[in-house]
Write a protein that binds this DNA or RNA. Sequence first.
DNA 1: GCCATGACGGAGC
DNA 2: TGCTCCGCCATGG
Length: 107
Amino acid sequence: MSAYNAIYAIVQQIPYGQVATYGQVAELANLPRRARLVGYALFRVAPEMDVPWHRVINAKGEVSESPVRYGSDHLQRSLLEAEGIEFSPEGRINLRMYRWQGLVDAD
DNA sequence: GCCATGACGGAGC
DNA sequence: TGCTCCGCCATGG
């Protein structure tokens, strides 16, 4: 068991049509200032897991893509657009509009 | 066990 | 507004 499970749990709580930043997920996962670990956790997440990793983006509102993810480069953007999330011409998301409130269950 | 790296964040310029 | 630098710390070689 790793702290990543907490991260996955948080990501799974992100509702449809909304997104969250790495730092936000980290904080909700009780891991403040560990945004990098969130990214690392999402990088290691397996597709067999039901984790909407595509709803997690960086603080700049951009989708962070890795050249060697799962053979899907702009898949993340496609998934987000499919949820009604609009992208700016720069490929960014309006966080003030789609940012998840982050409903902390219990702590 | 140490060194380098990384889906990031925030402050500084 | 945009780019650069530093900090955090788990993971892998």
